[in-house]
């Protein structure tokens, strides 16, 4: 599938989120178009991760509206967001430590598995064939991410870079419409970053998945994203093409401080 940026898929309007007296997000509006790579940047504590948590239903904003494919989204729990096709990875890796790589990625297929408990207990008929069919899909993801050699390894034993990759694999197993990536390259060396960039672009290109990306590495952000939104202290201070954002004086002030 060749990549062509489509209509607005997710539209956030005037989102405000408070925790008690702390304002995490104040009156933020931006939209995400289908098939694009949308980056969210900003200094630490700007509210980037909170923004992702709002999008996939972990946090419930006090004010604002969210439109998903044109329809207003009411109160949303994370597993409901998942069933509408929103997947995410975690900043500090949310893998299931006691399980193997294969099982971790298989959990991403949960929503697509329909057989009942009794058949699963008997390992019989539909339950068995379903399990094997999903195993086939998961193996495709394992091939895609080039992690064949570790498929039976418990994830707790893997190095950090590979864990990040498995985290991405688990999200991909959901075959998401929108993929939220929370700092997918944090703590990686240059080669690992290059690999990860390649995977993200391949996902975007081959599957047409819309990608929302939080990243601190400006080089990466400017290279791979189509549009960038900048947050600072819970407010939106910039939004646009990478070049526009880079030359925006307010963004420069937020990153470099007022004196420069």
């Amino acid at each position: 599938m060749s990549r062509k940026i489509g209509d607005v898929i997710l539209d956030l309007q005037n989102i405000s989120l408070r925790f008690g007296g702390v304002k995490a997000l104040t009156d933020i509006s931006f939209n995400i178009r289908e098939h694009e790579v949308r980056a969210i940047i900003g200094p630490n504590g700007a509210g980037k991760s909170s923004m992702l948590n709002v999008i996939n239903g972990v946090y419930h904003p006090q004010d604002g509206k969210i439109f998903y494919r044109g329809a207003e989204r009411k109160k949303m729990e994370p597993h409901m967001a998942a069933s509408t096709g929103i997947a995410r990875t975690f900043q500090n890796i949310g893998l299931f430590k006691g399980m193997s790589v294969l099982d971790n990625i298989m959990t991403g297929r949960t929503l697509k598995m329909k057989s009942n408990l009794l058949l699963q207990a008997l390992w019989f008929g539909p339950a068995r064939s379903e399990e094997l069919a999903h195993r086939r899909k998961v193996e495709e993801i394992i091939d895609f991410l080039e992690i064949q050699h570790i498929r039976k390894t418990p994830v707790g034993r893997l190095p950090y870079g590979l864990q990040k990759r498995v985290d991405l694999g688990r999200a991909l197993a959901m075959e998401p419409q929108i993929l939220l990536l929370d700092e997918p390259m944090a703590g990686m060396n240059v080669e690992e970053k290059q690999d990860m960039c390649r995977f993200i672009l391949d996902v975007n290109d081959q599957f047409g998945t819309t990608i929302v990306l939080i990243e601190h590495d400006m080089g990466v952000v400017m290279d791979i994203s189509d549009r960038v939104v900048v947050l600072d202290y819970g407010k939106k201070i910039g939004d646009g093409l990478p070049d526009e954002v880079r030359s925006n004086p307010e963004v420069i002030r937020a990153y470099l401080g007022a004196g420069h």
Binding site: P78, H79, L95, F96, M99, T107, T110, L111
Partner: peptide
Amino acid sequence: NLTRATVGRQWMAIRDMDVAAEVIG
């Protein structure tokens, strides 16, 4: 059989990291 099927994986997912489990559905 239960522990190697999807329901068993769901249990283990809840055990290991319940927020992440919920986020993947």
